Computed example of a mutant assay.
Amino acid sequence: MTERQTVRIALYQPDIPQNTGTILRMAACFGLSVDVIGPAGFSLTDAAFRRAGLDYLEKAALVRHASWEAFMAERAERPGRLVLSTTRASQTHAGFGFAPDDILLFGRESSGAPEIVHAAADARIRIPMVDGVRSLNLAVSVALVVGEALRQTGGFPPA
Rank of each mutant, 00 (worst) to 15 (best):
G107N: 05
G21V: 06
A143R: 14
L11N: 09
T6D: 10
A60K: 08
F96Y: 14
T20F: 01
R81N: 04
P17Q: 06
I23G: 07
A10Q: 03
I116Q: 12
A47G: 06
G155V: 13
M26N: 15
M26T: 15
A99K: 15
T45E: 00
G95W: 08
R75C: 01
V133K: 10
V133I: 06
V117L: 06
F49G: 03
F106R: 10
N19I: 00
G31L: 06
V133L: 06
T86R: 04
R108G: 08
P158Q: 15
I23W: 02
R124G: 14
Y12E: 01
A66L: 07
T92V: 07
S90Q: 15
V117C: 05
E115L: 14
P100N: 13
P128R: 03
S135W: 08
F106D: 03
T6Y: 11
I127W: 02
A60T: 11
Q5H: 12
E77I: 02
T86L: 03
T153L: 08
V34Q: 00
A120N: 07
G112F: 09
Q152W: 09
Q91Y: 08
A61S: 07
R126P: 00
L24M: 10
P128K: 04
N19S: 00
A113F: 03
G107S: 05
R134K: 11
R4N: 15
V142N: 12
I103Y: 04
L62A: 03
N19W: 00
A48D: 07
R88S: 15
S135T: 08
G147Q: 07
L105D: 01
A123L: 14
A52I: 06
G31P: 10
T45R: 05
G132W: 05
L138N: 00
R8Q: 05
I23K: 09
T92P: 12
A73T: 13
R124C: 15
A27L: 14
M1S: 15
R50A: 02
Q91H: 11
